[in-house]
Amino acid sequence: MKFILWKPILKLVLREFFIAVFLLLGVSIVIFSILHLAPGDPLHIFINIQTQNPEDVALLKRELGLDRAIPIQYLSWLNKLLHGNFGNSFRTGKPVFGELIKVGVNTLMLTIGSMIVTLLIAIPIAVISSLRRHPVLSWGLTLFAYILSALPVFYLGYIVIYIFTKKFNLFPFLPSGAVSSSKFNLIYFFLPIMVLGVGNGSISEIVRHLKMQLERVLSEDYIKAAKAKGASIWRHSFKEGILIPVTTMVAAKIPFILGGAVVVEQVFNWPGMGRLAWQAALDRDYPVIMGITLFAAVFVHVGRLTQTLVFAFVNPQTGEKGEGD
């Protein structure tokens, strides 16, 4: 029999939403300030500022809304955002929101896929080495995890492209423009996801954290008692020893994976948020950068929310009940 008390969980979710509003506001202010403090001018994508006559420059500035004071610019952006409008890209003139949704899905697939790859590598290594039954094997596996984590993703990306697409021709390389054509299929996902999964640098940290937590839990009295009653120690250690530490690490690693995605998308010509961010940063395309930042912040916060919810469901003391088999 299962029963869940929804009220405290609903309260938790509402609290997280409340936090999210302030968090996003803070993030947008900081990013807006940084954008305007940094050198560079978005006008250079349209005209050569040095040679153009000043009247045209002023006109263009007014058109883009860049002639006003910076706080006013921010407030007007915020006003538009509250009405569901992310603004238009300086470069393409298209609405930012539609653009973000299109590339956001690709990035989401890339990050979630690579997180799964990371976990598939890290969890078995942590479990085997926490058992302390095979010292040589677990030593070797841990070393392997550290070496994997030490490989920078841009380096790994080019090596993998060279080996798998040039040398052995096993996987196709994503040609530019493939996104819109019918050529774009799942096979293109494989290499970028593998590279980001292996090279995002969090394998060793997940192994270390999970191993430490598992060892602690496996030495708990209740695990000994479970063993004495002939039950599976894995069933008894799963929640505290695996589920909670893995959720913690995944939530903590989302920002790093997003950072890695920027590089991987460049290397693999992947039509995602990272590549858009890179282009927007070069162009000083303010609306796009702001939009991407907010999307990333929401993504990170959703990770945090998931973690809170998992904790609430697992831990009978904080969230009250939610017991499965």
């Binding site: 009295d221 209740y222 000994k224 008692a225 479970a226 004495a228 009653k229 505290e240 009978p316 017991e323």
Partner: peptide, 15 residues
């Protein structure tokens, strides 16, 4: 079968 000292820590707190 076995019963342990400090029963509070010998029962699985999550089940």
């Amino acid at each position: 079968s076995m019963i342990f000292q400090n029963p509070k820590s010998a029962l699985n707190p999550f089940i």
